Amino acid sequence: MSASFLPVRAARLDVATAAAQAGLHPELVERFAELGLVPWTTDAAGRMWFPPAAPALLRRIVRLHADLALNYAAIALVLELLDRIEALEGRRGTLGTEGR
């Protein structure tokens, strides 16, 4: 007996949903996407789609801009550095458990 499976689409958010979950205006979300601050893709119809983690990233961008008065180029650099730190901490955690 063979099982049939329905196709599964990756979870994604449209501009309006990402904006609502982040508490932002959709035009601001589009601007952040165009600046390369948040990852996005388009479908065949040209609509923007964001990963499920986008609202948290959008809120982080707004906090960096408001609290530290960083421009968007500096925010891109800070986000890249934070990603690198997180990756290094993950590697350190893995290396620390191998020797036990």
Rank of each mutant, 00 (worst) to 15 (best):
Val78Ser: 02
Gln21Arg: 14
Gly23Asp: 10
Ile85Thr: 09
Thr94Tyr: 12
Val8Thr: 13
Gly90Asp: 10
Leu68Met: 08
Met1Asp: 11
Met1Gly: 15
Ala74Met: 10
Ile61Thr: 00
Leu68Phe: 12
Arg59Pro: 03
Ala76Ile: 00
Ala10Val: 10
Ala22Leu: 05
Asp14Ile: 07
Arg31Ser: 05
Leu24Trp: 03
Leu37Gln: 00
Arg63Ile: 03
Ile61Leu: 01
Gly99Trp: 13
Pro52Tyr: 04
Leu6Ala: 12
Gly46Lys: 05
Ile75Tyr: 01
Ala11Asn: 10
Leu82Trp: 04
Asp43Met: 08
Val78Ala: 11
Leu58Arg: 01
Phe50Tyr: 15
Phe5Glu: 14
Pro52Asp: 06
Arg59Gly: 04
Thr17Arg: 07
Glu80Ala: 13
Gly90His: 12
Phe32Ser: 00
Ala54Leu: 05
Leu58Met: 06
Pro52Gln: 04
Gly36Asp: 04
Pro51Asn: 04
Gly23Glu: 09
Leu77Tyr: 08
Asp43Lys: 05
Arg59Thr: 05
Thr42Leu: 07
Pro26Cys: 09
Gly96Ser: 10
Ala66Asp: 15
Leu64Cys: 04
Asn71Gln: 07
Arg91Trp: 08
Val29Gln: 01
Trp40Arg: 04
Arg47Gly: 03
Ala18Phe: 03
Leu68His: 11
Thr17Gly: 03
Gly93Val: 07
Asp43Ala: 06
Leu79Ala: 04
Thr97Gly: 05
Thr94Lys: 12
Arg84Leu: 10
Val78Tyr: 05
Pro51Gln: 08
Thr94Trp: 12
Ala16His: 13
Leu57Tyr: 01
Ala18Val: 01
Leu81Gly: 02
Pro39Arg: 13
Gly90Met: 05
Leu79Gly: 00
Glu98Tyr: 13
Met48Thr: 02
Arg9Ile: 12
Pro55Leu: 09
Glu98Thr: 09
Ala33Ile: 00
Arg9Glu: 15
